[in-house]
Structure formats: C-alpha cells, structure tokens
C-alpha cells in the first residue's frame, strides 16, 4: 500500500513537473521568439523569427499569439523588401497567418489591428489599382479593432500612420495624422496587458511620426 502510495505520489509529482515544464517551456520558447523578433534586422532574421513562431503554432493550437507574431514578422519582412512581387508574397502570407489567429481568438482587437495594418500595406504595393478597394477593407478592420478595445493604441497608430503617408489630395496629410497619432501616444502610455507576450510594438515609430507632424 505504501509503495503504491509512494508510486502514485511520485507519478503526480513527475506529471505536474512535466506539465509545469511544458508551460514553462512555452514561456521560454515565446520569450526566445520575442528576443529574436526584437533583434531581427533583415528579412533573413525575420524569416527565422517567422519559422520559430510557426513551430510554436504547430504545437500550441489554442494560442493566438504564435501565428500573430508569425504574421507580424512577415509584415516586417514586407517592409524591408523593395521588390513589389516579394512584398505581395510576404503580405499574403501574413494575411493567412493573421486569419489563423482570428480563428483561434474571435473579436480580438489586436488581431484586427494587425490585419488592418497588413491590408494597408498590401494596398500600398500598388495604390493606383488597389486603393479603391483595399482602403475600405483595411479601414473596416481597424475600426473594428478600435470598437473592440478603444484603449488599444495600435489601431490609432496605424490609422494615423496611413493618414501621415496619404497625400493631402486623398484626404491625408500631417495635419490629419497629428490628432490620431496623439490619441495613439496617450493610449500607449496607459495600455497594459496581463499577458507578458501581448503585442507592445508601435510606440517608438508612433512618436517619431508625431514629432514630424510638429
């Protein structure tokens, strides 16, 4: 009896240890991903980041963050590429990944914010032909992101950035961008998330754009 008890106890300890090790491993592997993402300088680094999160996503089918960061890494790869055809490949891949996040976590402000961002960038590859259709789609995503969580700074940042780079003739310009970016900055100051891996990006660039508006 005693033996059985000991065995059972031992089993429990090891099992919980295993489970603990597993969740701890998730934290560690996500942390590693964040470090890789923060230090990524070129498309090569970002490809490694994207691959890293893809591997996590393969295991963590209930977590929306791995595919979110996979999408984010591809979005950034798109920024760093000059070839329009390649930009499209990166953005298309990012859109597929953010849709996966959306399938895991519905009505998530961060997901819609990133989705709107990718859609905007997809439009900017060929604005002459895509603006008419894609701006509406991107704006719809970003408005949804705002509605789902008005305190999220990112949808404001992305809308502000879009206004910043849109010629005045099309209703953009620095004057239009300034109040939106200011709201974003205010939100960036306040915004807190319980999840250590929740999206944090955008503040520096937002500040930089806002400085140019002054």
């Amino acid at each position: 009896m005693k033996i059985l008890k000991t065995l059972f106890l031992l089993f429990l300890i090891t099992a919980s240890g295993l489970i603990y090790a597993q969740t701890d491993k998730y934290t560690a592997v996500m942390q590693k991903g964040m470090t890789l993402l923060d230090s990524a300088k070129n498309t090569e680094d970002l490809l490694a980041v994207s691959n890293h999160f893809e591997r996590i996503a393969g295991v963590e089918t209930k977590q929306w963050l791995p595919t979110y960061y996979e999408a984010y890494a591809n979005l950034r790869s798109g920024f760093l590429t000059n070839d329009n055809d390649k930009k499209d490949v990166f953005f298309d891949k990012a859109l597929v990944q953010i849709d996966k996040s959306e399938a895991i976590s519905a009505n998530n402000s961060e997901i819609y914010a990133l989705k709107g961002y990718i859609q905007f960038m997809k439009m900017s590859v060929d604005p002459q032909n895509r603006a008419m259709e894609m701006i509406g789609i991107a704006t719809t995503s970003l408005e949804k992101a705002k509605a789902l969580d008005p305190s999220n700074p990112r949808p404001y940042f992305i809308l502000g950035q879009a206004a910043f780079y849109t010629p005045e003739a099309f209703g953009g310009g620095k004057e239009k961008a300034k109040p939106i970016l200011e709201t974003a900055i205010t939100n960036f100051e306040k915004f807190k998330s319980a999840d250590p891996f929740a999206p944090k990006w955008g503040k520096e660039r937002c500040q930089m754009l806002l400085d140019q508006c002054k």
Partner: peptide
C-alpha cells in the same frame, strides 16, 4: 533552400536552414 523550417512534430524543437 534558404529559410526552410525544420521541426519535430508536436514539439517546439526545430530550426531554419541557412543560405
């Protein structure tokens, strides 16, 4: 093939191929 993703299924373990 540069940038291929290699992993052990159902684990985090893996790597990207270099150039």
């Amino acid at each position: 093939i540069h940038g291929a993703n290699i992993s052990v299924k159902n684990s985090y373990d893996g790597a990207s191929s270099d150039s």
